[in-house]
């Protein structure tokens, strides 16, 4: 009994009963597709939240009377604070230019206005701010007590919402992901049972003419391996095609142009492939146990 001979028998079996085997593959395909689709959405939302979170920060408006030579000292002080990733100084001139560029064609309204009418400010980028909102809040309060500071701004309400949403999202995804895995495992194992039971007579005869358990089981396990691989591989390919399509659609739309989406990470792809194969092979081995009298 060699691997090539087992492979040959497995292929012959697949070919002889294409219908039943296709059923199993389709069931695995659909389960894997639903699961990976769901995961893709989860990963992208997670990415989005994280990305957004890292870009969040504080804007610190200084008193207009703050002397220019205080700026470097303040800069150092801010940069030294815990969790601060980057500090950018926006001078009144720079703020004015920025405002002008926002206004574009209507920048005439600024004619005659003193370019120094805006207060100088600092922009702080905080490390993974969204996950440490309390820290952000404490930081803001602390800075607000400094004599040079007139106002500290951050989108607290918005941030709180985002945080609650991401916690909720995680819970929903984990629970429904678990249910999804359980239900597809149930469906797949029952489909596999059907394919195994359909060949009960063949297994009985093989046993009667002196086949070893390995001889009987080998082709079944190889078939299961291929079904798991094919079903989940096709599902991932399908999902990838859909992903690319959405990507081009988003590229064409100006509204979503800036939003980045990404495909499932490689490790996760590996987990889906391996999980499907494992499910098929172990399901088959389990279903066959009663026919083999080990």
């Amino acid at each position: 009994m060699t691997l090539p001979s087992l492979l040959k028998r497995a292929l012959a079996d697949l070919w002889n009963d294409l219908g039943t085997h296709m059923l199993t593959t389709v069931v695995i395909f659909l389960s894997a597709l639903i699961f990976s689709f769901f995961s893709l959405i989860y990963f992208n939302l997670q990415n989005f939240v994280e990305h957004f979170g890292t870009e969040l920060g504080l804007v610190i408006y200084l008193n207009k009377a703050t002397p220019q030579d205080r700026i470097p000292a303040l800069y150092q002080k801010l940069a030294g604070l815990e969790g601060v990733q980057a500090v950018v100084y926006i001078s009144p001139d720079a703020a004015f230019k920025r405002l002008a560029s926002y206004l574009k064609d209507e920048k005439d309204v600024l004619k005659g206005v003193d370019p120094k009418f805006l207060p100088p400010s600092f922009e702080l980028r905080i490390n993974r701010a969204v996950f440490h909102l309390d820290r952000l809040k404490r930081l803001a309060e602390k800075i607000n007590r400094w004599p040079e500071v007139t106002k500290v701004q951050y989108g607290q309400e918005w941030l709180n919402k985002l945080k609650r949403f991401s916690v909720l999202l995680r819970a929903v995804v984990l629970i429904s992901g678990l249910l999804l895995v359980l239900s597809s495992a149930f469906v797949v194992s029952n489909t596999i049972k059907l394919t195994v039971y359909a060949r009960e007579q063949e297994m009985e005869i093989l046993r009667l003419v002196g086949a070893t358990n390995g001889f009987i089981q080998g082709p079944f396990l190889i078939e299961a391996f291929f079904q798991g691989l094919l079903g989940s591989g096709l599902a991932l390919a399908f999902l990838y095609a859909g992903y690319r399509y959405v990507e081009t659609l988003m590229g064409a739309s100006c509204l979503l142009k800036g939003v980045n989406i990404s495909f499932l990470p490689w490790t996760f792809i590996g987990i889906i492939l391996f999980g499907s194969i494992f499910l098929c092979v172990s399901g088959t081995a389990l279903a066959m146990r009663r026919f083999l009298r080990l």
Binding site: R207, L208, V209, G210, T212, N213
Partner: peptide, 12 residues
């Protein structure tokens, strides 16, 4: 049980 197949090859 693992020897049964070899019995069955002698006994048809």
């Amino acid at each position: 049980p693992s020897q049964i197949p070899f019995l069955r090859r002698k006994v048809s």
